[in-house]
């Protein structure tokens, strides 16, 4: 028994040594991001071209990167993915390195409409996603043209939805005619009352694409990327359409790269950012990751198939709002979000 045990330990030690030794050969770039969100080829080509090893590690939740940064573990990484909603706090909290855009000449390809001046000094947008309404023309009881349609009684048991206070409250605020990033408690309270009705119609939060493909729901409030997956899965039988909204704006969120304070390999991080902003590189990346992209040159260079994808087939692409950092008001949102879900 003891012998078997010591043999086992020795084996394990050998294994772990092998892994670390393997990793220590080349310069390294450490990136923390979503998995399955960047093409393997892009990473492999970058590694070859610049003779570096890229270590990708993955988050499960947008909150993960925030928690890592605020807990002081940012310097473990050279690039961290986060989204626009947290930028103000991250900048003001001093968790990020300021960017020198002259080191990222390709960033000129990025549409400035999607890249606020204040954010330009600290982040580079990667991909973006609309959070909009999609429904099944055959199964959904009504045609949906605005957020208020979602709380109609006919929609009971029909809706799948993304979750999170800061995704749900904006649509309620818009439906009520308020600022989607309101910090006014009375408005948030009214939005909460709207969401109570919405909540009654919702079957489940999360897994929207699985549920709509399997037929558990007929309408979803979700990301464009998930919609693209669902439509691709349905293939020829696709009866899903992006809801033809008439006046309500939709949320556009960004996944962006920031360099955390104290990053060890700033130069490599710059090289990488410049690399992914190259139109050809990004266009190739869009084949595997058919999401909306703020890089206009890349979209122009991308395949016909990508540009005509049914998930992006809607004509209110510019009628959008952004999720802003609401500062301390986040706790008010949280309080009402809890009330919504605890009842």
């Amino acid at each position: 028994m003891k012998k078997a045990l010591s043999l086992l330990i020795a084996l394990v030690m050998l294994f772990s040594l092998g892994i670390t030794a393997n990793a220590a050969e080349r310069k390294e770039l450490n990136i923390f991001m979503w998995s399955d969100y960047i093409s393997d080829d892009l990473i492999a080509d970058f590694e070859d071209q610049f003779d570096v090893r890229v270590n990708l590690s993955y988050m499960n939740d947008n909150a993960d990167s925030i928690t890592k940064l605020t807990a002081g573990a940012g310097s473990e990484y050279d690039l961290i993915m986060t989204c626009d909603a947290y930028m103000e706090s991250l900048i003001n909290g001093g968790y990020l390195e300021e960017l020198d855009l002259s080191q990222i000449p390709n960033s000129a390809n990025i549409n400035k409409a999607y890249w606020s001046e204040q954010n330009q000094g600290y982040c580079v947008p990667y991909l973006m996603n609309y959070i909009y309404v999609v429904y099944d023309t055959e199964r959904c009881p009504i045609e949906i043209t605005c957020y208020n349609d979602l709380i109609r009684p006919e929609m009971k048991g029909q809706i799948g939805s993304v979750d999170g206070a800061r995704n749900l409250f904006p649509i309620a605020l818009i439906a009520l005619g308020y600022d989607p990033n309101s910090r006014d408690e009375n408005e948030i309270k009214e939005a909460y009352e709207w969401l109570v009705k919405y909540n009654e119609n919702v079957v489940a939060y999360g897994s929207t694409e699985t549920n709509i493909v399997s037929g558990a729901i007929s309408c979803m409030f979700t990301y464009d990327g998930n919609t693209a997956e669902a439509m691709a899965q349905l293939g020829e039988n696709n009866t899903l359409v992006v809801a033809p909204f008439t006046s309500d704006p939709v949320q556009l969120g960004f996944d962006l790269y920031v360099i955390p304070k104290g990053a060890q390999h700033m130069d490599l991080a710059y090289q990488f950012l410049n690399y992914i902003c190259d139109p050809e590189v990004m266009a190739a990346n869009l084949v595997d990751n058919p999401y909306s992209c703020p890089n206009d040159a890349a979209v122009a260079a991308a395949s016909e198939e990508y540009r005509n994808g049914p998930a992006f087939d809607f004509d209110y692409k510019t009628n959008i709002f952004f999720q802003e950092d609401v500062g301390d008001a986040i706790t008010i949102y949280d309080q009402y979000y809890q009330m919504l879900k605890v009842g």
Binding site: D61, I66, D163, A204, Y205, D334, K341
Partner: peptide, 28 residues
Amino acid sequence: TDMLGGGKVLYIGNIIKNQFGTIRNWPL
């Protein structure tokens, strides 16, 4: 409960997780 229940109900674990995550209210 989140996955199989459709995330319609919050339990104490959810709330604590959210405070350390998106809500950034560590003291709570």
